[in-house]
């Protein structure tokens, strides 16, 4: 693609409208969304073959169709990706409980200050199940509402930040900025319960 084509596609994106569903699904040729084993093998072979790992990670991921909420497309010269207009996905948010038990509340990582911030709100390690469920509930609602901030995309996939809110009797509303990864088929997985 020459520079004029590239500029033309970018300009078109700026003025594009008509996606009544309001969402887009990213698609890279040859990377299935599921089953899990088929996607993993296809991505691994694509890695060996020199495909852009960022793009293969993006394939199957859903984004709100707004410039600030969707990764830039195309991502590079010769990009094999497409964005397909679609409806809001049936989203599932997953937060591994170890994000709390092995990271936030871990003695090993206490010096980073995250545990103290949770403890100031009255949370302890034993609240991990509650926190996991609350994070999943709020993150899912906010993702499908488009209430997220797009982060960077790398070989691991696209990142987003979502504010998780807690009401404290003395402090009022407290927000933690959590980090998530968008996965295929409407799934988001928690990277960190507290990014800052």
């Amino acid at each position: 693609m020459n520079s004029f084509d590239y500029a033309g596609r970018k300009a078109k994106l700026l003025f594009q409208s008509g996606n009544s569903g309001g969402w887009v699904k990213w698609f890279h040729a040859g990377i299935p969304d599921e089953p899990y084993w088929q996607r993993e093998i296809a991505r691994a072979i694509a890695a060996l073959f020199g495909h852009c790992m960022e793009c293969t990670a993006l394939s199957g991921c859903y984004f709100k169709d707004e410039m600030s909420l969707c990764p830039e497309h195309p991502r590079h010269n010769g990009c094999h990706c497409e964005k397909i207009s679609t409806e809001v996905p049936r989203a599932v948010a997953y937060c591994d409980i170890n994000k709390f038990t092995e990271y936030i509340f871990s003695d090993k990582y206490a010096s980073n200050g995250k545990r103290a911030l949770f403890e100031q709100l009255g949370f302890i390690r034993q609240d991990s199940e509650f926190l996991k469920a609350e994070y999943e509930r709020q993150a899912r609602e906010k993702y499908i509402s488009g209430n997220y901030r797009l982060g960077k995309t790398d070989n691991n996939g696209p990142r987003i930040n979502i504010e998780i809110n807690f009401n404290h009797p003395d402090r009022g509303l407290v927000s933690f900025v959590s980090g998530w990864m968008i996965r295929p088929n409407g799934q988001i997985t928690c990277n960190t319960p507290l990014g800052g």
Partner: peptide, 21 residues
């Protein structure tokens, strides 16, 4: 992924992340 690990680096004491790379 291709010999690279996802690492979150954090500041000491503040709870803030420096980078997720």
């Amino acid at each position: 992924i291709k010999g690279q690990w996802q690492i979150i680096f954090s500041e000491e004491g503040t709870g803030k992340d420096v980078a997720d790379i």
